[in-house]
């Protein structure tokens, strides 16, 4: 009862002053997100020439602009699916404490500390036509032909997997370890073999978390930029939407068009995220422990 008599709580009926703690964060959001976003939105509707929607019309009428949506999706979707698909079984294996769990987790997470550029540099040396991979394959007489894993679609995809995986893995690992292991043991006593324990217990309880991890990983992949230039073919198969925006802004100095492209980019991300989170509603969401206490 001592808490109820503290000065802050007696005033709670009118205005809770602890709410003021939100203020710095709110100001921050307003200054670095809301204002630039609204500014960009307005800018996109005030083109250099033509009507309000001229930038958007231009985007969807120009062949090397509107196609970037498909190009980016073709990179971001597989990268996200592969990352989530790989992270689930590995994280599931890592869910219980074991001597090697710490080591595997550390090794898998290391790439998160490397910047995109560093990864790109490493990949150029390793996967390049005269890189270590190519040389060792030739040395072992496994494959003698040239290897084309850089400066094309595959280079960018591999880099997205390397840089995106640790993030997805950590997210899913935290969801999996949050599920009470007693549930699986209860299922076992009721006759569920290890596969059924995963399918009936872990999988349904994980779906909301996986959807969340998917969304975050997708948004990250969709805004790919440095690796698309360094490891891809930025004029062709990996001309992603962020490259289009960059060219509009810093090569043609058309900030208005660049803003419009950025808005379209955000809108596509929003559609995918809204769809995935909408799907989540179909499944169970709630506590992941098995009872009181």
């Amino acid at each position: 009862m001592a808490r109820a008599t503290s000065p802050i709580h007696t005033r709670a009926a009118g205005f809770d002053r602890t709410l003021l703690l939100v203020l710095p964060a709110a100001m921050f959001m307003l200054l670095v997100f809301v204002y630039p976003f609204l500014h960009g939105l307005m800018l996109s509707f005030t083109p250099v020439e033509g009507g309000t929607l001229a930038n958007y019309v231009k985007f969807f009428a120009t062949d090397n602009l509107w196609t970037t949506i498909g190009t980016t999706l073709k990179l971001a979707m597989p990268a996200t699916l592969i990352n989530v698909g790989l992270a689930i079984p590995i994280a599931y294996q890592m869910r219980s404490k074991s001597p090697y769990q710490k080591w595997v987790t550390t090794i898998l997470v290391v790439p998160i500390t490397l910047g995109t550029v560093l990864i790109a540099e490493g990949m150029l040396t390793y996967f390049g036509p005269r890189g270590w991979l190519s040389q060792s394959l030739q040395f072992l007489h496994l494959y003698d032909g040239p290897i084309h894993l850089t400066h094309n679609y595959w280079g960018v995809l591999i880099s997205l997997i390397i840089s995106g995986f640790p993030f997805v893995f950590l997210l899913i690992l935290s969801y999996i370890t949050g599920i009470d292991p007693v549930l699986a043991r209860a299922a076992a006593t009721l006759g569920a073999d290890p596969w059924q324990q995963f399918k009936q217990i872990y999988w349904p309880l994980l779906i909301p978390g996986i959807a969340m991890a998917f969304c975050l990983a997708f948004v990250q992949s969709f805004s790919v930029f440095p690796s698309a230039i360094l490891l891809g073919a930025p004029q062709g198969p990996t001309r992603v939407i962020s490259i289009a925006a960059y060219e509009a802004a810093f090569e043609q100095y058309d900030y208005s068009l660049a803003s419009a492209i950025a808005m379209i980019m955000g809108f596509v991300q929003l559609i995918i995220v809204a769809f995935v989170l909408g799907m989540r509603k179909v499944f169970y969401r709630g506590p992941v422990s098995g009872g009181k206490g």
Binding site: V182, L183, A186, T189, D193, Q200, Y284, G286, S289, G290
Partner: peptide, 20 residues
């Protein structure tokens, strides 16, 4: 034998009901 092959019924301390 693993638990699923023994076929004993077990009631857990925190019940371990499947929440979903």
């Amino acid at each position: 034998l693993p638990p699923e092959k023994r076929g004993f019924g077990m009631v857990f301390q925190n019940y371990a009901l499947f929440p979903h």
